[in-house]
Amino acid sequence: MSVLVYTQNWDGKFKKSSFELVSYASKVADMLNVSVIALSIGAVENDELKKLGNYGAGKILNVNNEQCKILDNQVYTNIISQVALKEKSSVIIISNNNEGKAIAPRLSVSLKAGIGSGVSKLPVNLNPFTVYKRTYSGNAYAQVVINSEIKILTLAQNSFDLFETTNNSVIEDLNISVDSSLLKTEVKDVQKMAGKILLTDADIVVSGGRGMKSPDNWGPIVELAGLLGAATACSRPVSDEGWRSHDEHTGQTGKIIAPNVYIAVGISGATQHLAGISSSKYIVAINSDKDAPIFEAAQYGIVGDAMKVLPKLIEAVKELKK
């Protein structure tokens, strides 16, 4: 028996979220009294793979064959499925990010394993196996029983702390053959936004809403974000108007994020917006309307004109950095 954790890599590197995932997997394995096996697919150097051991992975499996150069959901599902059966995994843990959401449901059918998707803490019960997840777009949480033999949990990003431990890991290169007819995805073009802090990875997010009045007023938001090492985000009306790109749209139908601090500037705080940010540890609201619902969600608030408040905030952060 084992807990299998699939750790995605980005150009051969892991991220903090990968280590959160392994930390989570090793706590689940402790509950079940079994070992943690990490699975990496694609080209990753041994030094990098070894890092997964710092968070409790006992065995680190590395699959790197011709078919896994690009993400094909059927190929990846097939590899993870084969490994899970070989390692007799009773729980499989995957991130709830784009890649995880693409693979986990297929894996569920392939292994007839129920999914607890977007879990944000450890299972609340082992018998019956019960997980805790966000539901109704953040307006509620639920306990969900998974009644299949194998369980798949997808972990919400930024919801679990890192736990370091003694590294006793061994790395094993695994030769898994995949029927080449499975590979059907053809990538025609890739556009990467280099140098930008990803919204879903960011610890700090500075976000602007319609209260910013014009796309020309975004300068101070971008500057403040730069100083804080933060990502920039926006509300739906802003992306609908084309003031900012739709990748920045945070809210129910956009990105769901959980940074340590979310600074909402000129955002009124409609239910749909709050659905995307309610898991933030702290919410800061800056708005000229003292009755804006965002203040009910916020722990810190400033009632005032953003264009006057932001320059002062920027000065204060510059002072702090000195």
């Binding site: 007839k112 509620a140 639920a142 969900v144 998974i146 009644n147 722990q299």
Partner: peptide
């Protein structure tokens, strides 16, 4: 394969 057994509202901040 799954069943929702109980719901709760988020804790007020």
């Amino acid at each position: 394969l799954t069943k929702f057994i109980v719901f709760e509202k988020p804790r007020p901040r």
